[in-house]
């Protein structure tokens, strides 16, 4: 119950944040402009619209997750607002989970707005909305949940600026993990292989949530892949939140 109180207040905090509207505006602009760009190609117009639409939802969703997520906890500590919260009968983990949940609500609302914009473009151009698109968007949302959890974890022990850098790094590496592993295997050096394996299992493999290419090019999807990806995401989020709670629990608010 207290988690919900914190979550709703966090939602209120984020919707009164200006950066959110800027990002949302540009996301809708990008999705809208896909119509214009598609006219530059001969045929394949629907692919361009789908490609740009899904990519915009993905990129701007992640940007919102990072730039709102990094400030969630560190700002409360820097501005000392946390003093009045922790001195209430609330456990620290409740505060942390409430913050996370609040941002998930914000992300859900934002993603919905972007998806509505995307579908509107498709309908106006009289293209079909396929179930695969919904699956792609679902996985994009799971990716946002993972990235938000990572941003939240950094935000429990470092400043907003450093959290942003760390989270963006993890996001970029997370998309290149498969390549790293293959690269290490090619090198054949056992130390390198071990290190790359360790990174591969510790860092989030964000390519698991990327089926945009398959959807755009109408390649058949393996349903078990989607289920496994979602489960992988939820497991990863649980681990990250658990470490965040442990870090946050021990921390002194100076």
């Amino acid at each position: 119950m207290k988690i919900v109180v914190i979550a709703l207040n966090t939602f209120r905090e984020t919707v009164r944040e200006k950066v959110l509207y800027n990002l949302l505006f540009f996301a809708l602009l990008m999705i809208g402009s896909s119509v214009l760009l598609s006219t530059l190609t001969i045929g394949e117009q629907s692919k361009i619209i789908m490609d740009i639409g899904l990519a915009s939802i993905n990129i701007f969703g992640i940007l919102i997750a990072i730039f709102v997520g990094i400030g969630l906890v560190s700002k409360e500590i820097e501005k000392k607002t946390i003093y009045t919260i922790i001195s209430k009968p609330i456990y620290r983990y409740q505060f942390l989970l409430g913050k996370y949940l609040g941002l998930l609500i914000t992300l859900f609302v934002n993603t919905s707005i972007m998806v509505i914009g995307f579908f509107a473009v498709l309908l106006i151009m009289s293209y079909n909305i396929t179930p695969d698109m919904i699956k792609a968007i679902l996985l994009i949302y799971v990716e946002m949940m993972v990235v938000t959890a990572v941003a939240l974890m950094f935000s429990t022990f470092t400043t907003s600026a450093l959290s942003a850098i760390f989270t963006i790094s993890i996001y970029v590496i997370g998309h290149l993990l498969g390549d790293l592993k293959a690269f290490a295997a090619k090198l054949g050096n056992p130390v390198m292989v071990f290190m790359m394996d360790a990174l591969y299992y510790i860092l989030p493999n964000l390519e698991n949530f990327n089926i945009k290419g398959e959807v755009v090019h109408n390649i058949a999807l393996d349903p078990s892949f989607i289920v496994m990806s979602v489960l992988y995401g939820l497991l990863y989020i649980t681990m990250i939140l658990l470490s965040s709670v442990i870090i946050f629990q021990r921390r002194d608010f100076k």
Binding site: K2, V5, I6, R12, K80, T81, Y83, T84, P89, I90
Partner: peptide
Amino acid sequence: GFLPEAPYFYDYLTAHEFLRFYGGLFE
């Protein structure tokens, strides 16, 4: 009840919302 030193509160909340939020934490 606790009042911290030089308190900073949530700028985006109104006085009424602010008290309601804290009341919520006490259920």
